[in-house]
Amino acid sequence: MKVTMTVNGKAMSAETEGRTLLSSFLREGLGLTGTHVGCDTTQCGACTVHVDGQPVKSCTVLAQDVAGKTVTTIEGMANPDGSLSVIQQAFQDNHGLQCGFCTPGMVMASAALLAENPHPTEDEVRHHLKGNICRCTGYHNIVKAVMSASGATSQKLAAE
């Protein structure tokens, strides 16, 4: 079945089976390989994207179940001119990433937090990110990045 949804502001379609996961739809159907898959038990969060503004783990959502909805992936997070958004820039400025594999999910989860709670405490950041596993950074610089981005939330966090 052909499924259409709005991805990063554009209507996009691909063929699906009932079992096609949103992560596969994005990666294989649309070629948006920035969304990564790091586990099969809905825990690592590398596949986190936004559906209608809410963070979801795209490896545990059926593509057909979100037909017609609005999806934002890491590829849609930069500013319209291509420069890094505030949250992305904060990750670079604070060395909040190393191998980069968990990073798309971290950025999407962090953006969701700041959208809901623009000035979180460090504790709130740590609790909010517990569904996103990073093996490289020890989270220290990720937390720093999110805190630093929260100081700049007068600007738009992402182009969504």
């Binding site: 890491i74 930069a78 890094l84 670079q92 798309p104």
Partner: peptide, 21 residues
């Protein structure tokens, strides 16, 4: 120095083996 490789990782442009078709 800030990392140059971050730009591709932060924009979903990293190219890991599973991304290659």
């Amino acid at each position: 120095t800030l990392r140059r490789e971050d730009i591709r990782f932060l924009t979903g442009k990293g190219r890991y083996t599973a991304d290659i078709n």
